[in-house]
Amino acid sequence: MNNKKKIMEDLIHGIFLILGLITVGCVFLITVYLIISGVPAIRKIGIINFLFGTKWASTAQDPKYGILPFILTSIYGTAGAIILGVPVGFFTAVYLSKVAPSKMRQIVSFIVNMLAGIPSVVYGLVGMMVLVPGIRKLFNIPDGASLFAAIIVLSIMILPSIISVSMTALDAVPRDYEDASLALGANEIETYFRVSVPAARSGIAAAVVLGVGRAIGEAMAVMMVSGNAAKMPSLFQSVRFLTTAVASEMSYSAGLQRQALFSIALVLFLFIMLINATLNFFMKKGDVH
């Protein structure tokens, strides 16, 4: 009887172990699939030609598969979104965490959560209908669908993650630090920016890195506002990102072209893994405090 019970318990333990390991299995599956389907095209095209080729003409008679334009567009777009989005997100987070009365904090947090809950296609739609024509008129260019439009949409989309992660970090700063600073004669604003912010710096850094991850991985919204032309990036011209390069040709691609799309996904995946590792580094550092 007792033996039977033990077997039963072991069996259940085993089942839970398997459930626990499913996430590991998924990561493994994704990695293996991307490598298996992404590597052949890179080998055929040649890694230098693929990564540093400046021309992408997948449907031409003599097809060219250089993805440097996409890599640069993704990097520029992300950098632009960070430059615009991080300051706004940072100051909002400090205000909500330290200055705002609790009712105000609740209301603005709800608004920020609303921004986070808006689907990316809705950002894309509004960008396409308002931002793109607006940019065309304002800067007097033939088409407003450009890197600039994408940067603005991305900077709004990363705001909620930057605000909420920075807020969590700022909330966790021990009240004693701030009290000590106030007791030494610093005013409240000085305390928040010179004591609380430095104490929460690894959390804020994590927020920025998370924003980078969001921006570089966004596909649909960017697809709707960036124009999607496969050439070297320029602020007011139509551009194509790593994500949109995969999405835009997937439905009609075949052969080497299709394989090359998987290779682009692999490159994107490597970028994301690098960003995750950085994020982990900052999160771990935060634990020490």
Partner: peptide, 23 residues
């Protein structure tokens, strides 16, 4: 397991779409 979960939550949805299609 926790590292795997963090990795999963950082992967962009377009990659999920691609692997979902393949698998």
């Amino acid at each position: 397991i926790e590292y795997a979960a963090e990795t999963l939550s950082g992967i962009p949805s377009i990659i999920y779409g691609l692997v979902g299609m393949l698998f």
